[in-house]
């Protein structure tokens, strides 16, 4: 299989944080949701991929190229959107097009203006007056207008209202129609991922807890519901995380079908990605 992103044994140590042996593979033509709470290591991983930070250990290949040796080539073919707009407040979209036109070989000014129109962004006004949503849409328009093959989005939809988020997700879906295109999409808004992602990678305290296809994930995991009496009889090694109160317990389990056989009288619900994330991070805490 061809990969848009291949990360092997990536490690980076900071004073207070350790990115530990991260492995990640994003097959070409798909969208990977990169989830985890704030501070789990999403941005660090992305910064390492972009060579903004230097890795202690490990290798990163993007679009089949080495991320340091072929940095310029990779960046010609990649569009990046950060959580905050990085354009100067006293610039106008028109000027941005002129600047990026000098930076990217493949800059497509008519396409950029098409996106501006579609997003209802004025070309000739200072960015100063733009709302957060408008700035984000501008960043996305800029990231798409040099015909990239890979989009890297770091919390690009966080802090936006649902209508704009959906508008943006539609753009991503369009982008991915071309099977040569791929998206890495970091977010803690798991609902957006549920709607768009093919793969989900979950990072927690600097480690990848899992990285697999979303459908598999949803099929595999389940939420077992039971009372406190039944809870005692449940095999400890089946429990990934649980939440309990005096009315009963919710337990995150894997191998849903097998568990249905094992615990016949008990209900097993399907899960959302958010459930999985919450139970891993916050599980085993009684509420």
């Amino acid at each position: 299989m061809d990969y848009a992103i291949e990360i092997n044994n990536l490690s980076k140590r900071f004073e207070r944080f350790h990115l530990n042996n991260v492995n990640l593979a994003l097959p070409k033509g798909s969208i990977m949701g990169f989830i985890g709470e704030n501070g789990a290591g999403k941005t660090t991983t992305i910064k390492l991929m972009l060579n903004l930070l230097k890795a202690d250990l490990g290798s990163i290949r993007i679009l089949g190229l080495d991320h340091v040796r072929d940095e310029k080539k990779i960046k010609e073919a990649t569009g990046v959107v950060f959580d905050e707009s990085s354009f100067h407040e006293n610039m106008k979209p028109k000027q941005i097009s002129k600047v990026l036109g000098r930076i990217y070989k493949e800059w497509d000014e008519p396409l950029f203006y098409e996106y501006l129109e579609r997003f209802r962004l004025p070309a000739n006004e200072d960015i100063k007056g733009f709302s957060r949503g408008m700035k984000m849409k501008l960043s996305i328009a800029a990231a798409l207008s040099h015909h990239p093959k890979l989009l890297i989005l770091d919390e690009a939809t966080s802090g936006l209202d649902p209508i704009i988020r959906n508008e943006i997700l539609d753009i991503f879906r369009e982008f991915i129609q071309d099977e040569d295109h791929s998206i890495l999409f970091s977010s803690h808004i798991t609902g957006d991922l549920e709607k768009t992602a093919d793969y989900v990678a979950f990072i927690h305290e600097g480690r990848i807890l899992f990285s697999r296809s979303k459908d598999e994930l949803i099929d595999d995991y389940g939420l077992l519901l039971c009372g406190s009496e039944d809870f005692k009889s449940i095999d400890k090694k089946d429990i990934i995380g649980y939440r309990g109160n005096r009315f009963g317990y919710e337990i995150l389990i894997r191998n849903k079908d097998q568990m249905k056989q094992k615990y016949k009288g008990l209900t097993i619900d399907s899960v959302t990605i958010e459930d999985i994330m919450l139970f891993y991070v916050k599980g085993e805490e009684s509420i």
């Binding site: 903004l52 905050e84 100067h88 407040e89 930076i103």
Partner: peptide, 18 residues
């Protein structure tokens, strides 16, 4: 100062700029 305010450097380096 303007570059710092916009967080420009990391963005510039995400483009084909050395």
């Amino acid at each position: 100062s303007y570059d710092a305010l916009a967080n420009w450097e990391r963005y510039a380096l995400s483009m084909p700029v050395t």
